[in-house]
C-alpha cells in the first residue's frame, strides 16, 4: 500500500498534474498497447512487468526522456509524463500481475 502514500506525498509536493493523483494502473493502460496486458511484450518489445526495482524503472524512463539511452519511441513517450506519473507507473509495474 506504500505507493499510495508516496503518491499522496507527491500530490502534496505539487507538479503539473497536482490536481489529481497519478493513477498508475490507469496510466499503464497505454503501456499495455505495446508491452502487452501481462507483460508478454514480444517482437523485441521488452516485458516491463515484475520490474521489482522501482528506482530502475524511474531511471530508465529518465534516461529515455533525455535520449541518453538509445531508443526508437520511448524518448518521445517518456517526455509526455510527469515525475509523479512515472513514479506511479514504476510502482504499478513492480507488483506481480
Amino acid at each position: 500500500m506504500r505507493f499510495h502514500t508516496l503518491a499522496a506525498l507527491l500530490l502534496l509536493a505539487g507538479g503539473p498534474a497536482a490536481a489529481q493523483t497519478a493513477d498508475g494502473p490507469l496510466l499503464a493502460g497505454a503501456c499495455a498497447g505495446c508491452h502487452g496486458v501481462t507483460g508478454e511484450g514480444g517482437h523485441g518489445i521488452p516485458n516491463i512487468y515484475h520490474m521489482h526495482d522501482r528506482q530502475q524503472f524511474v531511471e530508465l524512463m529518465r534516461a529515455f526522456r533525455t535520449n541518453q539511452r538509445p531508443n526508437t519511441v520511448m524518448g518521445r513517450i517518456a517526455r509526455g509524463y510527469t515525475d509523479a506519473e512515472i513514479t506511479a507507473l514504476a510502482a504499478h509495474f513492480a507488483r506481480a500481475q
Partner: peptide, 20 residues
C-alpha cells in the same frame, strides 16, 4: 537498425493490442 526495429515493434504492438 532503427527502421528495422520500428518494423519489428509494429508487429509487437499489433500482437499486444489485439491480444488485449
Amino acid at each position: 537498425e532503427h527502421r528495422r526495429l520500428e518494423a519489428l515493434y509494429a508487429d509487437g504492438w499489433y500482437d499486444a493490442i489485439t491480444g488485449e
